[in-house]
Every structure is written in C-alpha cells, then in structure tokens.
Simulated assay, not measured.
Amino acid sequence: MALEIPIIKEIVTVPLSAGDKRLAEIFDISENLAGDIRREMKWFPKFSKGLQNSGVIVDIEVFREYITYRGTLQWKKEWEEIKNRRK
C-alpha cells in the first residue's frame, strides 16, 4: 500500500484589508479616488466599521459594498444630511 503525499507548490492568499494604493489596483481606480472614498466612508456609520488603523486601512469587502452604494439615491439623501450636519 503506497502512501501519497500531496505537495503544495503555490498558495494564493486574498487580502482582507488594504490601503489606498492596493485598493486602487483592485478596483481599477486612481489612488487619489481610493483615498477620497476611504475618507468619505468615515461619515457613514454603517461603513465606518470597515476602517482600521485609524482609518488608514479599509476592509476590502466593506469598501466594495460602499462603492456599490455610492451614487445611489439613498446615498445622495444620506450624504446631504451629513453635509448639513457638518456645517
């Protein structure tokens, strides 16, 4: 009876969080836009949970959810409320 031992040649890991440069590469946007979106997320409580390291690093899945939400009618209403509170 022969014992077969599999050999793992390569391991691919998927990052869970990233900074602006990596987010820009993942989502095919500019690094400046990734930073703007990340800073915007701080104002939305349901998305600010995805910010780590004092808001410098973002959970990739939460970032994806935010850019999907960004620009919708609900987002526009919420953004207007946030802007009015900040004045």
Rank of each mutant, 00 (worst) to 15 (best):
R22Q: 10
E25Q: 05
I67G: 10
I37V: 04
F47I: 02
G35A: 07
E4V: 12
E4I: 09
D20P: 12
S48A: 10
R22W: 15
E25V: 04
D36S: 15
E80P: 07
D59N: 13
W43Q: 14
L51F: 13
D36V: 11
M1V: 14
S30H: 01
I37W: 03
E31V: 00
M41T: 02
M1K: 12
E61I: 12
E31R: 00
D28E: 15
K77M: 13
T13F: 08
E80R: 09
V12T: 15
D28A: 10
G55I: 01
K49G: 03
I60Y: 03
I29C: 07
K87F: 10
W79P: 04
T68E: 09
I29T: 08
L23N: 03
A24C: 05
A34F: 04
K83C: 09
I8M: 06
I82A: 14
V14L: 15
K46Y: 00
F27P: 08
I67T: 14
K83H: 00
I7V: 14
Y66C: 00
L23R: 00
Y66I: 03
F63Y: 08
D59H: 07
I60T: 08
K42P: 10
W75A: 01
K76I: 06
I5R: 13
I26V: 13
S54A: 10
I11D: 00
E25P: 00
R86T: 07
I5P: 05
V12Q: 13
I37T: 05
R70W: 04
A34G: 07
N53C: 05
Q52C: 10
L23P: 05
S54I: 09
R39A: 11
K83F: 01
Y69C: 00
K46V: 06
